[in-house]
Computed example of a mutant assay.
Amino acid sequence: MTCCSMVDFRGHDFKALVFEFISNGNLEKWLHPELDRRHHTESLSLLQRLNIAIDVADAVDYLHNNCQPSIVHCDLKPSNILIDNEMIAHVGDFGLARFMSKATTISLADKSSSIRIKGTLGYIAPEYGASG
Rank of each mutant, 00 (worst) to 15 (best):
Y128F: 13
K102E: 14
S114I: 04
A89W: 04
D36M: 07
L17I: 15
L17V: 14
L31S: 08
G122K: 13
I106Q: 13
M6H: 12
L31C: 03
L82G: 01
G122E: 12
T2F: 12
I54Q: 01
T104K: 14
L47M: 10
L108Q: 13
K15Q: 11
P126S: 07
I22E: 10
M6C: 10
W30Y: 10
A125D: 13
G122Y: 09
S131Y: 04
S5A: 11
S107W: 08
G11T: 10
C3R: 10
N80H: 11
A89Y: 05
S114C: 06
T2K: 15
A130I: 14
D61G: 10
S45I: 03
L82C: 02
Y128C: 08
T41D: 13
P69Q: 12
S101L: 11
G25I: 06
K102L: 14
I81A: 00
T105H: 03
A109P: 01
I52K: 09
E42L: 03
A53P: 00
E20A: 10
S5W: 05
E28L: 12
L47N: 08
T2G: 12
A89L: 06
P126R: 12
L76I: 14
C3F: 11
F21V: 07
L27S: 04
K111P: 03
I88Y: 02
A130W: 06
P33Y: 14
A53W: 00
L31I: 09
L44W: 13
D75P: 01
L63I: 09
